[in-house]
């Protein structure tokens, strides 16, 4: 049954106005996600069990002892804990808008400063991992999808396996084989370029598996579409058909996954930075979780949610570039 597509009432809205409307909708969505993330972060801090001032002092001291009223009053004043929760909430949100992520319980320093110092290497790691995962995924899918039964099955088994590999384990294997065994890469990768490849691969391989699963299904479906037959009937060879026609039709799900993958690789950095002894946000996060330094943890949560929102804007743009029909709809 065809969708009703009768004539439009009056003049069709100009594409500029239409795009503005769409962009407006996306903006509202982005704000809602960010507000939601901020609220989650606030609730997390407020729900730390026990009296918060006591807990904060204990975290600072690294030991649980009874505190005097004077000590507590100072902390309460410093963190504004005397105010009603709702006031604290709005203060927190107001702070976030001006870039104030709060003060670390443990380090007495602004969270924003701590994150800013460590953010660079982790973001480089994430972006490298996403780029690598695209290369691996496209090569693997183009070579194996829609081939003989055996090759196709192998292709999809490898996708599934890769997608299910725990990052810590993959990291250890890569470390043992390529750094300790073959000595091709440094064992402690520090922040060098040579040290970037193994950690990035550790994050990239499972992501490539995930994207491969989604892309492969679309790829095999596109291979059977009439426009692909048309291209073959024009005299196009198999490899060119795959590269010029099929690939473009099959990568949309992988593009979506890339937005999600940015968050996944950023948080995966926690594991990878531990395995490869790299500095970065991941190390900061593990330490903070261990010591229940919640402002740091929630600061990172908000950072990653923000990057997720930014990534999704890029994904939306990529979508329209890949499939211009979406703009028209």
């Amino acid at each position: 049954m065809s969708a009703p597509s009768a004539q439009s009432l009056g003049a069709a809205p100009r594409s500029g106005a239409r795009l503005a409307r769409l962009a407006g909708g996306k903006l509202v969505n982005a704000v809602v996600v960010l507000l939601g993330a901020a609220t989650t972060a606030f609730v997390a801090q407020a729900s730390l069990p026990g009296d918060r001032a006591t807990v904060i002092l204990n975290i600072r001291a690294g030991q649980a002892i009874r505190r005097t009223a004077a000590e507590l009053a100072q902390i309460n004043a410093e963190y504004g804990l005397n105010h009603p929760l709702i006031v604290q909430y709005f203060d927190y949100i107001r702070g976030l808008v001006t870039g104030n992520l709060g003060v670390s319980y443990q380090q007495y320093r602004p969270v924003a400063q701590i994150i800013a110092e460590q953010m660079g290497p982790t973001i480089v790691l994430s972006l490298t991992a996403i780029a690598l995962s695209w290369v691996i995924m496209i090569l693997w899918v183009t070579l194996t999808a829609g081939r003989s039964a055996r090759v196709s099955a192998l292709g999809s088994v490898v996708d599934t396996t890769a997608a299910g590999l725990p990052q810590y384990w993959l990291g250890i294997i890569l470390l043992l084989v390529f750094a300790l065994g073959l000595g091709w890469f440094p064992v402690i990768s520090g922040n060098s370029i040579a040290g970037l490849l193994l950690p990035a691969l550790t994050l990239a391989i499972p992501l490539a598996g995930f994207m491969g699963q989604a892309t492969r299904a679309e790829f095999e479906n596109s291979l059977e579409q009439p426009f692909v037959i048309s291209a073959r009937m024009r005299g196009m060879g198999d490899f060119e058909v795959r590269l010029r026609h099929v690939l473009r039709h099959s990568i949309l799900p992988a593009v979506t996954l890339s937005g999600w993958g940015l968050g996944a690789t950023l948080s995966g950095a926690v594991v990878v930075e531990t395995v490869f002894s790299r500095s970065g946000i991941g190390q900061v996060l593990v330490t903070a979780v261990n010591s229940q330094d919640l402002p740091v943890v929630t600061g990172i949560v908000i950072l990653i949610a923000t990057l997720y929102v930014v990534a999704n804007v890029l994904v939306d743009i990529a979508y329209v570039l890949i499939d211009p029909r979406l703009k028209a709809q």
Partner: peptide
Amino acid sequence: GRRIGFILQDALVSLDPL
């Protein structure tokens, strides 16, 4: 394509929609 041309059904699906 050069000596034998081929026309399939509906162009909406027989030409690359992108």
